[in-house]
Design a protein around this nucleic acid. Structure first.
Lengths: 133, 133
DNA sequence: TGACCAATTGCGCAACCTTTCAAGTCTGGC
DNA sequence: GCCAGACTTGAAAGGTTGCGCAATTGGTCA
């Protein structure tokens, strides 16, 4: 595979770019889980969960094995745990940086809901532009 | 919102889920770059590059500042470099794991054992068509 | 001031991802 | 053998993303 390995890297990160998949990996970081256990821990429909598991399987991040009547998933590469951890670090730093910036601005807007740190300077949310169809 | 956390993490990873953005971050990991420098290093149209930079800016991973006649970008959070590094580690391990499996599949299929399961491991290869690379 | 250059933004189209419903496979128990 | 439970797969709908072109903005320099 000599195609730009940027492609491969991007694909790896994109695989982690889904809340359910992140959560699955975090659960599997603690210990192996059967599908129905994951299902109980994550609010998701069975088929959706299965789809996400398939994505993780396809990129080689997790492995499945049948044990009796259930299918148990486990992490293939331990380094994955470090990757998740590194992600948390970056997220923490970015949010801290944004809060820091926020403090230098005028008093905050109407705080109807707290707990959400999203300074207008650089919201972590993607784009929400015109909606008209 | 009890758990916008996974959402935020997923967004962070998804931000890295694009070849151009990975490449940009890797270049910026070495040193600050002006936009035209990035443009020279990455095969991409100016407007596309600008859009990817905007994505990175929105998530707070990079910062822009005007210096003379050019705009210079730099990494905001140093931990980002570690994140990229962690990604490389995982990718390396996953690919190694797949190669390892591939070696065991060399002999042609002679299925006779009932308990044998299918490989269940697909290469990291994308099915998406690459229009240019 | 006005020409110019570096970057960015708006927009339409095509490709892509996620969710959901329906149907299928595999195991163990009756 | 047949049924129920645990999972997976296939396909369609709906929303989102990325790319290239054209149009603009912001700033520098003659």
């Amino acid at each position: 595979m000599r195609v730009p390995l940027y492609q491969a890297k991007a694909e790896l990160f994109r695989t982690l770019g889904h809340p359910a998949r992140i959560r699955i990996l975090e659960l599997l970081s603690e210990r192996d889980h059967a599908v129905h256990e994951l299902l109980a821990a994550i609010e998701l429909e069975a088929s959706s969960l299965s789809q996400q598991l398939a994505v993780l399987r396809r990129t080689g991040l997790v492995r499945q094995q049948r044990i009796g009547g259930e299918v148990v998933y486990s992490i293939v590469v331990p380094a994955t745990i470090d990757l998740l951890s590194a992600g948390r670090n970056v997220l923490r730093a970015v949010l801290a940086d944004q809060d820091h910036l926020a403090e230098q601005l005028d008093p905050p807007p109407s705080p109807s809901t707290k707990g959400a740190r999203r300074p207008a300077t650089a919201p972590l949310t993607p784009r929400r532009k015109t909606r008209s169809a």
